[in-house]
């Protein structure tokens, strides 16, 4: 009896075990494909040019920091890094503020034509950036902002997706919270700062990740409005590296690594947070 039971159950067990091994193997393979290029890049930045283009070995034989030194001396790398950091930080902070405020307004207030106005705001999500690109360029150059970081910053003051996200969240918060605070005589901006913002921490955090990465990565629009090498953001600097130093792969490697590094460091410590933040875009 016992024997037959074990005989019955080992077969599916083996099948599930086999299935599990295959699944893990498959996922390990894909994880490796996703990660190995970065590992190669990391070690590549410490290789001299000749080794970088000829050696199959992952680890450098001749460790060197020359590539990093050169990228800082030959190009305005430090400045591009600072520009990107300033731009991404400023964009993130303003987007959080405008999204939370607009979300609060449309999620909590009653006023004439509220829903129509909000639909008009949301409708802009369906407009591809290319349609407004040329008129925006004309507008920005009439404002005299070409070749300044404001040309990138100002058109992103409000994020439609951010407004949408925050409105959804704030509209679902319990009404009592707001009324209680108002009865206590809190001014409206106090309600906003003391109640709305702390309660909306998690969608705000997701939005912060999204906005920061979006700004850090922005390429097409900065390419159009920035020509001055001193005003370059990191993606523009990498692009110029490609055209000005078209075969200096060791410089490319160092530049790419330094652009990736801050985001990757943050990601290693809080990948779940990033994933949750970015997954809200489509869900």
């Amino acid at each position: 009896m016992v024997g037959s039971r074990t005989k019955h159950s080992w077969q599916p067990k083996l099948v599930t075990l086999l299935g599990r091994v295959v699944t893990h193997g498959f996922l390990l393979l894909f994880s490796a494909i996703a990660i190995i290029p970065f590992v190669w890049l990391f070690f590549g930045t410490f290789k001299p040019y000749r080794e970088l283009v000829s050696s199959s070995a992952l680890l450098p034989v001749d460790w060197t920091l020359e590539n990093y030194r050169e990228i800082f001396t030959r190009l305005y790398f430090g400045r591009a890094f600072a520009n990107s950091l300033i731009l991404a930080t400023a964009s993130t902070l303003t987007t959080l503020l405008t999204s939370a405020a607009t979300g609060f307004l449309f999620g909590r207030y009653q006023f004439w034509a509220r829903d129509t106005l909000f639909s008009l705001i949301l409708a802009t999500m369906m407009i591809p950036g290319t349609l407004t690109m040329v008129p925006l360029y004309i507008f920005i150059s009439n404002l005299g902002l070409v070749n300044s970081l404001y040309a990138i910053f100002v058109p992103g003051l409000w994020s439609t997706f951010g407004c949408f996200l925050m409105r959804q969240f704030i509209a679902d918060l319990p009404v009592d919270m707001f009324d209680a605070a108002r009865i206590d005589g809190a001014a409206e901006w106090m309600v906003f700062v003391r109640i709305v913002i702390p309660m909306a921490k998690s969608p705000l955090a997701a939005l912060a990740v999204l906005t920061f990465l979006g700004s850090w990565d922005g390429f097409m629009w900065p390419l159009i409005v920035i020509n001055d090498a001193k005003k370059y953001t990191l993606p523009l600097l990498l692009n110029s590296l490609r055209s000005l130093y078209w075969s200096r792969y060791e410089l490319w490697a160092a530049g790419a690594m330094l652009t990736i590094a801050p985001v990757m460091l943050l990601y290693i410590f809080s990948s779940r947070f990033f994933i949750r933040g970015l997954a809200v875009t489509g869900k």
């Binding site: 894909f30 970065f38 990498l238 790419a256 990757m264 990948s271 970015l278």
Partner: peptide, 11 residues
């Protein structure tokens, strides 16, 4: 698997 999505496209 998500890592490549996070890092800079230019890099």
């Amino acid at each position: 698997i998500f890592l490549p999505y996070v890092v800079s496209l230019l890099a």
